[in-house]
Each structure stands twice: as C-alpha cells, then as structure tokens.
C-alpha cells in the first residue's frame, strides 16, 4: 500500500523568509487527515508544493507515488483541489466553470454533479462576478467533489459557507470517508476536524509540531483537574508535571501532565478530597497551546507587494 502524501524535511523559502522549515506530513490511504496551524503557518504553501505550483528547496515530497513537480500533469488527473480563496472568471457561469474544471481533470460524474448542485443549493447559471464568496466556494466544492479521484486536497474549503452549507459539506465529506477516499483537509474549524478526521497534523512556523490521532494527542497531553479539598493544600507547586496551578482557599484548579497524575492525586487525597472534576483538555486548549503567540510568516510566505497596474 502506497502512502498518498508523504513529505519529510520540506523546506521552502521566499527570499529571506523560511515559509516551510523542515515540515513532515504523512497521509495514509483511505484516511481523512486534518491539517492545522495558525494563519501563516505554511499550510497553503505546503499544498502548493504538493500541487507542483511551487518547487521545494529541499526535502522529499511524494504524492500518489510520484514527484509532484515533475509528474504534475499525470498526478493532477488523480486528485481534486479546492482552494480556500476561490476567484472565478467574471463572465463565466458557475456551471461552465464546474464542467471546465471537470473536463480538464479528465472527466466527472454527471449524476454526482447534479446531486451536489442540488445539495449545495447552487444556481449554476449565475456569472462569476455576481456570486458571493460562499457561492464561489460552492462552485469549487462541486467541481472538486464531483470528480472520481483518489485524493482530495481541501484548503479551508468551508470558508464563507453558512452553517447550513457547512453541515452539507460535513455530510458529503463523511460519505467520502465511508467510501474510503483519501482526504487532506486544512481547516480552522475544530468541530469539523473532530467530526471528520482520523488523524491530524499541527504545524507552526513551517514546522510540524504534532501529529497523530485525536485520542493520542489528547492522551499524551494534560488532564485538567478542578477539586475542592478539606483544607488548603500545601506544596502542590513543587510537584513535577504541574501547570497553571490556581489555589483559592480550598479550591484547586490545575493542569497535570498525564505522566504525573499519580503523584498529584496522591497529594490531593492526603489533604482530603470533597469534590473532584477531571477532564481531558478540550481541542481548543490543545490548539491554543500549539498556535501560541509567536510571530509567524504570512501564509503565502511573502509580504504584500504593491499591486502593479495591469
């Protein structure tokens, strides 16, 4: 079994900016893989390297068993890509764009096309210039999902969709997941990732910081404990693996590394526990910790240059 997407030690620089700095990413066959990271972490740059639009500076990139730069055309017939920011031709209708992209990809399923247009409630006769952002996104989604391809590359595909359409997208993708389609989904919407993805990779500043199943990520992490004790506790902050400790009289709130739960619980029970709530960290907490506040490079790895007259 080949690995549809396999990236290791990928580096891509734009001038003096290192947009990708040793990135690793593996997507297994039949897997829905969440690709997460703060704005400017390098998600779009990674996808563009995968599509052969950008040339890697160093590292190895394999896509569907081929080289995305040299075998671009042949590989592109086996995948569909939905960009996060869809620009359409002002005087082409949505239907024309869908058909054109499908044919250029080597054909699409007409039944599926009609069904998706119906489900996404898209008017295919409108011209590109009169679509809203959400409707432009739908055009790209229909074009991408109506093709019978091995791999879907989706770059924040639900940006601009209303909650109703987001639900439609989620259902559609769940069906694809059932069929065993391989999907790389870059997204910011955690509930979406949680509902759809088998595994996730979190990147930051062009580097992979975490990868694994959601359960693995959670378990490797900390547990948050909220306890009311018999008397105010002593010496908790001296224990290993204790983070964000706050003591308010007899009430203790603390984050504990799972490896050190035993010690902390023992310390609590010696004082006497009146009530205790413990929970795995929420996804938000997980991501916020990784997203952090350090400055990152712009998504496309370049600073805004002034528009030239065209």
């Amino acid at each position: 079994m080949t690995t549809p997407v396999s990236i290791s030690s990928l580096v891509k620089t734009f001038g003096s900016t290192r947009a990708l700095d040793g990135l690793h990413l593996e997507v297994a066959e039949g897997e829905v893989h969440g690709f997460l990271g703060p704005n400017g972490a390098g998600k779009t740059t990674t996808l563009r390297v995968l599509l052969g639009l950008l040339r890697a500076d160093s590292g190895t990139v394999r896509l569907l068993g081929g080289d995305p730069w040299h075998d671009a055309v042949a590989l592109h017939r086996r995948l569909a890509y939905v960009p996060g920011d869809v620009t359409l031709w002002p005087n082409l209708s949505g239907g024309e764009v869908i058909d054109m992209l499908g044919r250029m990809r080597g054909g699409m399923n007409p039944k599926r096309r009609a069904e998706l247009i119906e489900r996404f409630n898209l008017d295919p006769t409108k011209k590109g210039r009169s679509y809203s952002k959400g409707n432009r996104q739908k055009v790209a989604l229909v074009a991408g999902l109506a093709s019978d391809v091995e791999l879907l590359l989706l770059d924040e595909p639900t940006s601009g969709l209303d909650p109703l359409m987001e639900a439609v997208f989620r259902d559609t993708l769940l069906e694809e997941r059932q069929k065993g389609r391989t999907i790389l989904l870059s997204s910011h919407i955690l509930s979406e990732v949680e509902a759809l993805c088998h595994r996730v990779t979190i990147i930051r500043s062009g580097r992979t910081v975490e990868t694994g199943t959601l359960t693995e990520l959670r378990h490797l992490r900390r547990t948050s404990i909220d306890a009311t004790l018999a008397t105010p506790p002593q010496g908790l902050d001296g224990l290993p693996g204790v983070h964000d400790l706050s003591v308010d009289g007899t009430r203790v709130r603390v984050q504990v590394d799972n490896a050190h739960l035993d010690e902390v619980l023992r310390a609590l029970t010696t004082v006497g526990v009146r009530s205790l709530v413990s929970q795995p960290p929420s996804l938000e907490e997980l991501f916020l910790r990784h997203y952090g506040t350090e400055p990152t490079v712009d998504e496309r790895g370049q600073t805004e240059t002034e528009a030239l007259p065209r």
Partner: peptide
C-alpha cells in the same frame, strides 16, 4: 499580460491543479 493577471488573481491555480500542463 492576461497570463499574469490570471496568475496573480489565483485563477490560474485551480486550472494548473488539474490535468493541464
């Protein structure tokens, strides 16, 4: 020059992500 505006407006990107060279 249309080539450049198609590229800069990211309209070229979805096309070049299909089976055309």
């Amino acid at each position: 020059m249309r080539l450049r505006s198609e590229e800069a407006n990211t309209r070229a990107e979805p096309l070049l992500a299909t089976g055309i060279s």
